[in-house]
Amino acid sequence: MKQTDNLQKLTIAMPKGRIFEEAVGFLQEAGLQITSDLAESRKLIIPVPETNLQFILAKPTDVATYVEYGVADVGVVGKDVLLEEERDVYELLDLQIGYCRMMVAGLPGWKPTESPRVASKYPKIASRYFREQGQQVEVIKLNGSVELAPIIGLADRIVDIVSTGQTLRENGLIELEHICEITTRLIANRASYRMKSEAVDDIAQKFLQVIPRNQK
């Protein structure tokens, strides 16, 4: 196949926030020359000298968007984002980091109500889940502090991700139902997966070397 230099250049979208540190550590272990102070830099596009890589730092939900539109070739993103955003991308690898659970929580002693309301940062996941359970619920989209909703009576249950469960406990909530497990994934743009197949395969291969070491 024809090769040009341009086709070896790879833009990687990285999520700021919850899984950032773990993801950077993972990339370093995979042999990518990136420094740990990536996050402290205020720059949003960070080229890695002497390689064909550059990083884009983005909000986790935007990582999938960047990759779908092809402004980033590959991205590191949580399955929670993929389930919620339903982006048309290749989901290549489960990196087995950033582990948490998507679940339904509520106050202890929760009883089914006549007009159930669920608050979530993940309205699509919440709607889909309850629909599959044969329940019609009203979903309220929140952008943060979801645990507050049952306490102040905005909703009777919430759908959110939980890693240690500490935030839930501190707010007096309990897990009611387990929806699915969430880990971090390597995703690729449809065109990059073909146009830059060698470069994409190369990075996937490097990541693959690290995964078994991280297995719990």
Binding site: T4, N6, L7, E68, Y69, G70, V71, N189, R190, A191, S192, R194, M195
Partner: peptide, 11 residues
């Protein structure tokens, strides 16, 4: 078959 071009995210 699908045709892809460099710098274009979709077929």
């Amino acid at each position: 078959f699908e045709g892809y071009a460099a710098d274009l995210g979709s077929p």
